[in-house]
Amino acid sequence: MSNFPQDLMYAKTHEWVKKDGDVYIVGISDFAQSQLGDIVYVDLPGVGTKLESGDSFGELESSKAVSEINMPFSGEIIAVNNELTDSPELINSEPYSSWIIKIKADSEDDFNKLLNSDEAKKIIEG
């Protein structure tokens, strides 16, 4: 059964977001990684890229398919996790410590509009 840690917020497209001061850390949920299967390649964006909410910031390639990863809200990418380039499988084994990007948000309010863990759980339970 997929888990949704209480201290994180979630986008409807299954990214998790953690607030760390004024920086927002983004990865994909345990549910998302279990649906994708083995992740074999991560296509990361360039640092400094500015994107709108819902824009694709990269791709996750699993052994079966290729899926886009989306911005949970508008902002600038200030860091990417280069460790995933060599070890994309970390997203499968440790989805909540394998962050993908860090964002500086355009609006601090956007974080609070995301789903909490109970709401995210309800979405996958249908």
Binding site: G37, D38, V40, S63, K64, E89, N92
Partner: peptide
């Protein structure tokens, strides 16, 4: 079944 735990494994 598409995979059980990991198609790669």
């Amino acid at each position: 079944p598409l995979w059980y735990h990991s198609a790669k494994d």
